[in-house]
Write a protein that binds this DNA or RNA. Structure first.
Lengths: 231, 231
DNA sequence: AAAGTAAGTGTTAATTTGACAATTAAAAAA
DNA sequence: TTTTTTAATTGTCAAATTAACACTTACTTT
C-alpha cells in the first residue's frame, strides 16, 4: 500500500472512554473480551476504522454500538502509537472520551458485549495500554471541567445541588464547602431552580435544578478557581 | 496486512506546529514543498512514522530534522483522520505543537527545506487540512498557557517584563494593564530579577528577568484569571 | 540642558474569597 | 400529636484579590 517501505502502515482503531455518574460515583464503562486472544480481559470499548470513515465517525459508531446512544458529548483525547502496543500487529488507537447520562441507556446495553460500570478508582487491570488511556482521559476531564460547564452531561435533565457538588468532588478528588460551592455555582446564572424536589436522598428533599438554556453569557470562571488547586 | 478487509490500514504521519516569538509577534514556522505533487504549497513540517517508531519519537525526529533542536517542549495536540484529507492515499496525521526559542536555531535551519516564520495572523493558504491544524494548535496553546507557565519556552533565557506581557497579549489576543500584569506575574514568585538591562527596546532600558528554578511552589492561577475571559 | 521615550511604580474602591454553624423541611418514630 | 432524625438550605464577616486609573523615573538623543 505504501510506496515507501521505510514507512509503515497501520490499522487504525478508536477506543472510547465512557464516563458515567451513578450512585454518587464517577464510573467508566468497560467491556470484557469474549474472544481469543486476550479472552476475558477488560478493556475500553473500541473498534477499527472503516474505509472512508474518520476517527470521529468511527468513535460515534462504536459508542452507539455499545450503548445505543446517539449525539452524545464526545471528544478526542489522545492517540496511542507505540509500535508494539498491540503485540499482534501494528495498530494505533485514537482515544475518545464521552460523558453520558447512565439512566438514558441502562436497558439498551448491547447484549453481545459484557459491559460493566467500574468506579474510577477501582478499574481492574486492562488490555494493552488501556490503563494509560483511562488516566489520560481522567486528567483531560479535570482540565476540561475546570474551564467549561461540561459535567452536566453526566447528570439527568434535572439534578440537585448536592448531586452536582458530589460530582465535582469526585472529578476533582476534593471536598468543597457546600455554602461556598452553591454560592459560586448559582452565581454563574447557569442553573434554573425548579419547584419540584428530589425526595430520594433525604427527608427534606432537595430542589431540582436544570441548565438554563436562556443564559449564554454565563460566568463560569467562578468554578475554575475552586477547581484550580486540584489540577 | 490487515486480516479483515472491512478495515483499512493507513500511513501514519506527524505534523509539527512550531511556535516562535519574534519581533513581539507570535509566529509559526512553515515550509514550502519543493516536490510534486503540491509543489510550492506551504505546510507544516511533517513526516511519516518509521517502523518501530512512536508518534512522539517521530515528531521529535522531524522537529530536529528541520530545526536542529533537541529536547524542545512538545505536546500531542490532535489527530486528523478524514479519509480523503490527503487525496493521494490514506494518511492520518498526528499533530504536535512545540514551543521554541527562535534565537536558538536561526542559523541551523536545514537547507533542504524552504522554511519561513509567519505571523500567526498571516498564515498563507496551507496544504490539505493544515489550516485546521494551526487553529487547533493555537486554541490548545491558549488553554495550556492559561493553566501553566509554559510561554517562557518561547522566550530567551533572559527576558523583560514588557516582552513577556507582549507575548501573553499575542497569545490571548487581548491587552492587559501593565501594572496589574506585572503585579500578578511577580506574585507568582516564578521570576528572578537580574541586574542587567535590555536597552534595545527603549532608552531607559528594561530589566531582565529569568525563571527562578528554585521556586517550585509557585502560584500560577493568578495568571489564569487574567486570561480566562479570552479562552 | 532640554526633549523624548518607554519602563516602572501605588492607591483605592469594589468584588470575591474562604472559613465558619444555625435553621428548616419533611419523614419516621415515639 | 409530639418528638426525633436527617440532610438541605441559608448568612456573616474578615481577609484577599481585583480592576481601574496616571504620574515619575532612567536613559538617550538632540
Amino acid at each position: 500500500m505504501s510506496k515507501n517501505l521505510k514507512y509503515i502502515s497501520s490499522l487504525l482503531a478508536v477506543d472510547c472512554l465512557i464516563f458515567g455518574f451513578e450512585n454518587q460515583m464517577l464510573k467508566v464503562l468497560l467491556i470484557k473480551r469474549k474472544l481469543e486472544p486476550y479472552q476475558n480481559e477488560w478493556s475500553l470499548m473500541g473498534g477499527f476504522l472503516k474505509r472512508e470513515e474518520s476517527a470521529d465517525e468511527s468513535a460515534s459508531r462504536v459508542l452507539k454500538e455499545l450503548t445505543g446512544l446517539d449525539g452524545v458529548f464526545m471528544e478526542q483525547i489522545k492517540t496511542f502509537s507505540k509500535y508494539d502496543r498491540d503485540p499482534t500487529e501494528r495498530v494505533i488507537s485514537i482515544v475518545y472520551s464521552s460523558l453520558i447520562d447512565v439512566r438514558k441507556f441502562e436497558t439498551l446495553l448491547n447484549q453481545e458485549y459484557e459491559a460493566r460500570w467500574f468506579k474510577i478508582t477501582e478499574v481492574p487491570d486492562l488490555l494493552f495500554d488501556h490503563a494509560e488511556m483511562v488516566i489520560a482521559g481522567r486528567d483531560h476531564l479535570k482540565k476540561k471541567a475546570a474551564l467549561q460547564p461540561i459535567l452536566f452531561e453526566l447528570l439527568a435533565e434535572k439534578f440537585t445541588l448536592p448531586q452536582i457538588q458530589q460530582l465535582y468532588e469526585e472529578v476533582f478528588e476534593a471536598n468543597f464547602d457546600k455554602r461556598n460551592f452553591s454560592r459560586k455555582l448559582l452565581a454563574s446564572k447557569l442553573l434554573k431552580k425548579l419547584d419540584e424536589k428530589d425526595k430520594s436522598g433525604s427527608k427534606k428533599g432537595a430542589f431540582y435544578y436544570q441548565l438554563d438554556k436562556q443564559t449564554n453569557h454565563y460566568n463560569f470562571n467562578i468554578l475554575l478557581n475552586l477547581a484550580y488547586s486540584q489540577l
